[in-house]
């Protein structure tokens, strides 16, 4: 295939992915807006008013970056894992596998779909947050870079989950038992300064802690983690997961017998 044909193939996969999640927008775009809106209302407005400042900001401002990040992580992961596994389950993935599309184009198409949904939901949550509080974005470049890389990483992770999944149960195990605890313990709702030393150590082993804090730096200008170290880590994770996905596709894991 020529570069032009590969681009058309990539565009086709991406368009199909976007068509899929926009067709079921009530399931994909509305729930995060409602859930995160309730977080803002309960934790930000009602409880947050009693908590006072955190990290030099009002509590509702403090949780905005974490809640946006939580929505992006959950939705980019969910989009790829559910779409790819559904296609495996319906066997429509065979349309792709018998076509001459190189593995990296297939991967890019699905990851781009996950990133688009993650960012779309992130934008919706951002708009919802403006109805509860006002803030200025401290560093737009860092903000965009961090949210983009995070969406890429969790789209790649969702892709790996879908490759190994054999049933719909298998695609809900990781989000329930791994992602959700890591997100909640990743500093979305609190600063690690509040934790004892052991808690800080545990937090430093959680990759989502760096993502949330780097994103918080981009929006508010404050962070519990080193911003440069966080960016290096995000690039490293992206590279490792991309390589793993390509190797698994080449081996045909979960796809070819």
């Amino acid at each position: 295939m020529s570069s032009r044909q590969k681009y058309v193939a990539f565009e086709t996969i991406l368009a199909k992915e976007v068509r899929r999640f926009t067709r079921i927008w009530v399931q994909t775009l509305v729930p995060p807006a409602i859930t995160i809106g309730l977080y803002f209302l309960i934790f930000g407005n009602l409880i947050g008013a009693r908590i006072g400042d955190m990290g030099g900001h009002s509590y509702i401002e403090f949780i905005v970056p974490g809640l946006i990040m939580m929505a992006v992580i959950q939705n980019s992961y969910a989009n790829v894992v559910s779409s790819f596994f559904s296609q495996k389950f319906q066997r429509s993935i065979e349309e792709l596998l018998v076509s001459p599309i190189p593995n990296y184009v297939i991967l890019c198409g699905f990851v781009a779909g996950g990133v688009v949904r993650g960012l779309a939901v992130g934008a919706i949550v951002l708009l919802v947050s403006f109805t509860f509080t006002d803030f200025y974005i401290h560093d737009l470049t860092i903000t965009v870079l961090i949210i983009f890389l995070t969406a890429v990483i969790f789209s790649l992770a969702g892709f790996i989950n879908a490759l190994f999944a054999n049933s719909f149960d298998d695609i809900s195990i990781v989000p329930t038992f791994v992602l959700t605890p890591l997100i909640y313990l990743g500093g979305v709702f609190y600063s690690v300064d509040l934790l004892p030393d052991a808690g800080r150590l545990v937090s430093s082993l959680n990759p989502i802690f760096y993502m949330v804090n780097a994103f918080r730096f981009g929006i508010l200008g404050t962070s519990d983690a080193n911003i440069y170290w966080s960016i290096v880590m995000l690039f490293t994770f992206s590279a490792l997961l991309s390589t793993s996905c390509i190797m698994l596709l080449r081996r045909g894991t979960g796809l070819r017998h």
Binding site: Q5, V8, I13, R19, S92, S99
Partner: peptide, 28 residues
């Protein structure tokens, strides 16, 4: 290939099933 079992997405429109496959082969 025309497989033994139906393997296109049941939620796609008929024309989209064919158009999507054309896209996978890089057709303009």
């Amino acid at each position: 290939i025309v497989p033994q079992e139906v393997n296109f997405s049941p939620f796609e429109k008929v024309a989209d099933v064919v158009m999507t496959q054309a896209g996978y082969y890089g057709l303009h």
